[in-house]
Nucleic acid binder design. Structure first.
Lengths: 217, 217
DNA sequence: ACCCCACAAGAACATCTGTTCTGTTATTTT
DNA sequence: AAAATAACAGAACAGATGTTCTTGTGGGGT
């Protein structure tokens, strides 16, 4: 007597996820037997059984007697969009939870932002942070902006990056410079503010900024 | 001896168009027999014959032995994207060609930028400008940024807007304030720069900024 | 006329595929 | 423990569907 509501069993989640992946890859929905193979199930009847439940729960829509007649409520944008997870906020003094490597759990209930593919430009490991507070205004980044970051451990000199200062336990967006002296200079964009100097072993690059999106009005 | 090249016969164009419509409506590709019915053809072999040609010409992609295994090179936008015309650049001292009213010629060969619908949020008369030069850096807008504007003639106090100064023949992005004195104050965002004061009849609001998109790296 | 070729009609075929039927197993309820 | 229910397994059926085969048509070119 569980699952009366909209909660999906793990198998059902897996099926939905597979449908989405399949659709993304092939631009058309999978057949029942594709799902059997893709989810390692044993029988088409199992799929049908669960698809019926999924339909009742509103997770999918089916067209009877039509091959591959499965619709997702929000069809994965086969074309030009990507869903980038917004994994948190960034503000001075706040830690960033960084995703482990590149195995994202897109299906998790994390917020996502939909961006056109030309912004991501094929890069892997892209995530987004919402800027909280005005502490990054010197980098032309404002409160409420969304910054898109590529998860990398190293950046070129002069790139804007999300940087974790270990001892201070602070995350911040700054321009990154490795000085000839071996020190690392974190440079704000405004001449009113001086740079921050840190030793390399106190600095951890979390990602570099590849885009900023600001909505107003 | 026609159609050796990529040109499509009227029947083939019709088929492609039908596939696109069908896909748009159902979120999955049509079967061969759907095309027969939808295009008023007489036989599945006619469809198959033409689909093979279409595939050779690169108009579609087919997956053999897979029902509804038709892909369009650019699958129809399932509704989340809009193409916004980039009608020019904005920089101090440069005029902006502003579109007449709200009847855009989207099909014109003007550059467009594709943005997700959630950025436009249903607004009409949205266009984009590419920022040239660093003259707007005070508004957290940088060289190379794309600003999305909604074409309006009036803005609220405090909104960032594209403003045309008639006598100076200058276009600029500034925060707009109507002062109690009746003058208009155009306020940059940086305290280092003072505001510009102008009389209302010298000011023409061209649009208000609804989003900023900056790509880096 | 003749032949060649693009194109189409219609039927037939072999899969593919959604659905159903009959059980079986595990879990929960009484 | 017995009954009820959820979930799964396997097979089979019927319709959907891609593909192919044969035949027909109409026009150009020689």
């Amino acid at each position: 007597m569980q699952l009366k509501t909209k909660e999906l069993s793990s198998k059902q989640q897996r099926i939905v996820e597979f449908i989405r992946e399949f659709w993304l890859e092939n631009n058309f929905p999978p057949s029942v037997r594709d799902i059997v193979a893709g989810c390692g199930l044993s029988s088409t009847s199992v799929v049908d059984y669960n698809l019926k439940i999924l339909e009742k729960k509103g997770a999918i829509r089916r067209h009877r007697e039509v091959s591959r007649g499965i619709e997702l409520p929000s069809p994965p944008d086969s074309s030009n969009n990507l869903n980038v997870p917004v994994i948190g906020q960034i503000a001075a003094g706040q830690p960033i939870p960084v995703p482990d490597n590149d195995t994202w759990d897109i299906t998790s209930n994390a917020d996502t932002i939909e961006v056109t593919r030309d912004i991501v430009r094929g890069r892997e490991g892209v995530y987004a942070l919402k800027v909280k507070g005005n502490s990054m205004i010197e980098d032309l980044i404002n409160d409420g902006d969304i910054v898109l970051l590529q998860s990398v451990n190293f950046v070129e000199n002069g790139e804007t990056a999300a940087i974790w200062l270990k001892s201070e336990k602070e995350a911040t967006l700054k321009k990154f410079f490795l000085e000839p002296s071996g020190k690392i200079r974190l440079q704000p964009a405004n001449s009113q503010m001086g740079p921050i100097y840190a030793s390399p072993d106190n600095v951890e690059v979390q990602g570099r900024v590849i885009a900023v999106i600001r909505r107003m009005g």
